[in-house]
């Protein structure tokens, strides 16, 4: 297992490198965007004098490189600066929102991942049956409409027509955990529908892909029952692509849910990031992007470790 620890360390090192590259890319992309924070904040009310005054106050009149290096110096010591728009510390602006996003993602993942994998195994077992077709048509249809539209439909049926759940998921501080679960049920359900199809189909595909392998043939000839063939023999070798897709979808649950946040009025970090981009609020964009990137890198690392642990050949490289 020493090899694995070494690998993890190496990958974490790469992760830091990735974060650095991402921060450079984001910085210059924001620089290249037409307009700057002064013009964006003043909007329709911008005049040359007020824009110049605001630039000077924010220090935007200095060269981009210097500003980046200054920011980097702060970031290395854990200081992500203050929002160019509100003047509040960046972590105060996005901290609670990130926690909200994590909560919603975890809520959806706890339902979606086991559901998708179990469903994938069942449809692989019953491949080409009516159940297989129906499950596929249902999950595919659910990812065929834009997710905000899916949200609208769920609201219509589960909040307006049959008032089971609240239509808007705005949070307040004094909610109990179960109230929280009830409030955020519809956005979580929307996300479950959005990510289930991908994971289920990958599970099904990787298992079916292995069913013609000689060792599976062998097991079958020995008279092992079909479900046991799949769970005992096929699944362990199918994990790599499945874990990969699970990691991808978990990352999506955290980084890709802006539209769901908007539809359900959920105070997550996605909306904050889009707002910050539109205001050219570089420190906030940068911090939020790095949080996303960090989450993604960690999930990826977990997926790779998972793939190694589940594949005996990779575990003991020759």
């Amino acid at each position: 297992m020493g090899d694995l620890a070494q690998l993890v360390l190496k990958r974490l090192g790469y992760g830091l490198l990735t974060l650095l590259v991402v921060s450079i890319l984001i910085f210059f992309a924001v620089e290249l965007l037409p307009g700057d924070v002064a013009e964006a904040v003043l909007g329709q009310g911008a005049t040359p004098e007020t824009v110049a005054a605001m630039r000077e106050q924010l220090g935007l009149d200095r060269p981009a490189i210097i500003r980046y290096v200054e920011w980097l110096g702060g970031a290395v010591t854990g200081d992500f600066g203050i929002s160019a728009v509100s003047g509040d510390p960046v972590m105060q602006v996005i901290g609670t929102r990130f926690v909200n996003t994590l909560f919603l993602a975890a809520y959806a993942a706890v339902i979606a991942v086991p559901f998708a994998i179990v469903l994938g195994i069942i449809v692989a077992l019953l491949r080409n049956s009516v159940f297989d077709r129906v499950a596929n048509v249902a999950t595919l249809t659910s990812i065929s409409s834009p997710e905000f539209f899916l949200g609208y439909i769920l609201i219509l049926f589960l909040a307006v027509k049959v008032p089971l759940f609240p239509a808007i998921a705005s949070l307040s501080g004094d909610m109990s955990f179960f109230q929280l679960l009830e409030r955020t049920f519809l956005p979580a359900l929307t996300l479950v529908l959005v990510v289930t199809a991908h994971m289920m189909r990958m599970t099904r595909a990787s298992i079916i892909n292995l069913l013609a392998s000689p060792y599976i043939e062998m097991a079958r000839l020995k008279g092992v029952p079909p479900w046991k063939v799949i769970v005992r023999h096929a699944l362990p070798n199918a994990w790599a692509p499945i874990i990969n897709v699970v990691a991808l979808n978990l990352a999506y649950l955290i980084t890709g849910v802006v539209l769901v946040e908007v539809v359900f009025v959920y105070p997550g970090i996605g909306q904050a990031l889009v707002d910050a981009v539109s205001k050219r609020d570089f420190p906030v964009v940068q911090a939020a992007s790095l949080i996303f990137a960090g989450t993604f890198i960690l999930l990826n690392l977990a997926a790779d470790i998972g793939a190694i642990l589940t594949n005996p050949r990779l575990r003991h490289p020759k």
Partner: peptide
């Protein structure tokens, strides 16, 4: 005061009494 940027969210919040 609740910020409701999405037109559908506003509409349903009003209909459901939120």
């Amino acid at each position: 005061i609740i910020v409701l940027n999405d037109p559908n969210a506003r509409q349903t919040a009003l209909v459901t009494g939120d």
